[in-house]
Amino acid sequence: MNRDQRPEAGHHVGRYMGVAMREVEELQLVGRASVAPHLRGPAGGVRTGALLTMLDNVGGVTGGLAALPDGWVVSTNLAARVVARSQVGPLRMDSYLLRRGRNNVVTSVQIRDEGLRDALVASGVLTSAILVPENGPPQWTRPLVLEAVPEPAPDLPSMPDWLGVRVVGDHAVEIELAAELRNPWGILHGGVVATLVDLAAEHATGGGSTTDVVLHFLAPNRVGPVRASARELGRRTDGHLLRVEVRDEGAARTTALAIVTCATRA
C-alpha cells in the first residue's frame, strides 16, 4: 500500500475531532480534545463514535511510533468500554504500548474527563497491523507533537450531518465515501467506520447509546457507499446486544464486523 505523505492528506477527520497529542515518554502519548458541541449526541454526551475515533487516533499514532522504523500501522481491531455517558471536558487520552510483535502492535488507551477530576470515560485496546508503505514510513520529529486547530469552529455540523449519514430501513445506515473521510492510506478512516457502527446501533435500537464495542476491520473501504447493518442478538439488564456488519457496497464485500452493546436511553 502507498501512504499519502502530503501533510494535509487524510487528516480531515483528526481536525474535525480536534485532537492534539504529545509524546510524554517514549511510546507513551497523551491526547487532548474539547467536548465540542458537534461531537455530542442526542443525550448530550460525546457520541461513542467520537470517543472511538479518539481512541483509534491516539492509539494508532502510539502504535505507529512503535512500528518505526520498520513501517507504519493500520487498525485491525478496536475493543472499548464506555463508562461515562456525560462529560464536561476537556478529555484526555492516555495511550501506551502493551506489546510490539513481529507484525502487529497492541496499545492501551483510556479517556478521562479533566473537567470531572479525571473520571474515566472509556477504556480500550487497539490492535494494529504493521505495514511497510511503498514510499517508506512517515518521518516524525521525536518526541512527537501534533497540535489541533486552535479552537474548533463553532458551527461545525453534527457527526451524522458531517458524514452525510442516510437511513436505510429500520436497521442500517449508509454514507458515501467522501475524500475528506479517507485516511492517509486513501481508505475510509477507522474512526469513521467505528462511528458508522455506533450510528447503526443507535438507529436499530431507537436511540440507544453504545456502551461497549468490539470492532474488527476486515478489509479496506475504497469505493462506497459504505453501509452498516445491525442485527439484535438478545437483551440483557445492561442493554441490547447487536451484531453490526459493515459493507463496502460499491466493492460488494464485508469490510468490518462489530459486536455492540447498546443501552436504552433512560
Partner: peptide, 12 residues
C-alpha cells in the same frame, strides 16, 4: 498462528 485476542458476549 498465535492468538491475539478473544471476545465473548453472552445473551442466554
Amino acid at each position: 498462528i498465535a492468538t491475539a485476542d478473544l471476545t465473548l458476549h453472552l445473551v442466554g
